[in-house]
Design a protein around this nucleic acid. Structure first.
Length: 568
DNA sequence: TTAGGGTTAG
């Protein structure tokens, strides 16, 4: 739908004629979009002195905003379009987008003036509600009153397209703005485009666009560089990120704490500790103080490496530098203790969070539940799982997955399935991981027919089983002595657009060896090599084990030799 | 004296 609306909106800009649907277009709340109250006069035409004062500082929540709106509507003379728009933006900042749109609709019904900025804000609200299509429809109505969208209006729309995953369309619209000179993109628009492209994995396109931007008269600023640097770091291109960091400095743009945090995160992710140290030094030399984000990244990185003592040292540094840890910092520490199995310490941190004026999040509980489950202490995990609702938090897909997985690992299948039903009853959507956990449970208990039905059910609910899900079922079939069915399913993978990985080859090869089907093994090994899926140490191990089980030492020994030659 | 931008976690 939005493409048509967008095409129409863009065509209108190009031709400068009224949109075909502007007159009677009805917004989602069924209020006609247009009324005759478009405020076409500039504020100079209406002296501000004639308008009553409106106190926005008294607004603490959305109810206050609604009350003020009612007061403003009754005021005589009526407050200006600026004041009404200001109120709308206060509501938008509170993230009450639907409320802002209702106010907007009411303004139109009551004859309160709206202008280009008010309308752009309405577009923004639709976009933030993932309804960029309605945003484009509002765009179409701009021209009815001889008003033109500007760079901010288009920035809202491009951001809206990225939000709903319409990456190509966002890029297309941006290029159209450039090629048809519909507006002059500014730094903020570049940040939105570059960040959208980077986050969607189109990192090379983002880098090219940055190169283009560097050649314009309006030069990229620190935010623009930071967006691309962050994208590079998130796509394991830490060297490129470091290179870009040097380039921005050469061009006289100083990185800020956010830029450094992105690079530090990227370096921590790949364990480049020396570079992290150098960068921290560079930061301090440049008089950029680490913030709570920097510290949280470091705490998390140390904890993931099992270096909890070092993470605790970061906490001490935070105290010295007067940096207050936030819930993310504490969650990283909880996770660190859990990874080391130090559940007592992890729990102590959880219960100390409230003492520090913070509220534990669902992630705090999720980490602990995961830690207890990993240790097989499901009853303690369950106790915390139940505590979540008492604390006014909502269970999410991940906590359900963790708990179900924990129960199934302890063979508490009935409890696991009961929780799965409860999850759906609570309106928490199962994801691929949920289904994979349950599929594994079915296969481990040799409920193969149910596992097959489950695969079909997954497809029906729009969650396509991935290679891991198939590997679980194929493994279950092999372990249940149903090698033929397993091979059939394996052969169906290409038709499901799934590329077998080493793990799945190993499952089939191991079974074939146990059956003594050495010729079939040779065929699969050749196929594996051709597909770029190299045999690994597990491949050799399963083959050797298979042959030894058949007392075929003469087949096993040459494989041992080959395994050592290959260094697997 | 009305609008838009970047980083963290189970």
């Amino acid at each position: 739908m939005w493409q048509r609306a967008a095409a129409c909106g863009i065509a209108i800009i190009r031709k400068g004629i009224a949109p075909q649907f502007s007159g009677n277009f009805v917004l989602p709340n069924n209020a006609p979009f247009f009324s005759s109250n478009f405020h076409s006069c500039s504020h100079k035409d209406r002296p501000f002195s004639s308008k009553p004062r409106v106190d926005f500082s008294s607004i603490n929540d959305v109810e206050d905003a609604l009350c003020l709106f009612r007061d403003m509507v009754r005021m005589r003379p009526q407050p200006s379009v600026f004041q009404f728009t200001k109120l709308l933006t206060v509501v938008v900042k509170m993230k009450h987008y639907s409320v802002a749109l209702s106010l907007f609709a009411e303004m139109r019904q009551l004859g309160v003036p709206v202008d280009q900025i008010t309308m752009s804000n309405a577009i923004n609200c639709y976009c933030l509600l993932n309804r960029v299509d309605f945003g484009f429809a509002v765009l179409g109505t701009f021209f009815k009153r001889g008003c033109e969208p500007n760079v901010t209006t288009f920035t809202f729309l491009i951001k809206g397209l990225f939000l709903v995953g319409e990456i190509a369309e966002a890029e297309k619209l941006f290029k159209k703005l450039l090629s048809e000179k519909l507006c002059e993109p500014d730094e903020i628009m570049y940040v939105i485009v570059l960040n959208g492209l980077s986050k969607a994995g189109h990192i090379l396109a983002a880098r090219d666009l940055l190169g283009h931007f560097e050649n314009l008269s309006c030069k990229p600023n620190v935010h623009v560089y930071s967006a691309v640097i962050d994208g590079l770091c998130k796509h394991n291109m830490a060297d490129d990120a470091l290179h870009l960091l040097s380039r921005m400095i050469e061009k006289g743009i100083s990185p800020n704490v956010v830029t450094y945090n992105s690079v530090i995160q990227g370096l921590c992710d790949v364990g480049r500790w020396k570079d992290v140290k150098d960068l921290l030094k560079e930061m301090l030399d440049n008089k950029i103080s680490p913030d709570v984000w920097t510290c949280s990244i470091l705490v998390d990185a140390f904890c993931k490496e099992g270096m909890v003592e070092e993470a605790e040292n970061v906490f001490e540094i935070m105290v010295q530098r007067n940096i207050c840890p936030n819930i993310v910092t504490y969650n990283a520490l909880i996770d660190g203790y859990c990874l080391r199995g130090e559940m007592g310490k992890a729990k102590k941190v959880l219960y100390s969070i409230a003492d520090r004026g913070l509220t534990p999040s669902i992630i705090s509980y999720g980490s602990l539940i995961n830690g207890y489950c990993k240790q097989g202490r499901v009853d303690e995990a369950w106790h915390l799982f139940m505590e979540i609702s008492c604390k006014g938090l909502q269970h999410d897909t991940i906590t359900y997955n963790t708990m179900i997985h924990g129960l199934l690992c302890k063979d508490r299948f009935a409890d696991g399935w009961k929780l799965f039903n409860d999850m759906q009853a609570q309106g928490v959507t199962p994801n691929l991981q949920t289904y994979t956990i349950l599929l594994d449970g079915l296969c481990r208990t040799q409920q193969i027919a149910q596992a097959f039905s489950f695969l079909c059910m997954m497809e029906d609910t729009g969650v396509n089983p991935n290679i891991i899900a198939y590997a679980i079922v194929i493994d279950g079939l092999c372990k249940g002595g149903k090698l033929d069915i397993a091979r059939d399913l394996f052969n169906q993978l290409p038709s499901k657009r799934l590329q077998p990985d080493t793990k799945i080859y190993n499952i089939i090869i191991g079974s074939l060896c146990r059956e003594g089907l050495i010729e079939d093994v040779k065929v699969l090994l050749t196929e594996m090599e051709k597909s770029g899926c190299a045999p690994n140490s597990v491949t050799y191990r399963v083959m050797i084990q298979g042959f030894l089980k058949r007392n075929e030492l003469y087949n096993a020994i040459p494989l041992m030799e080959e395994m050592y030659t290959r260094g697997s």
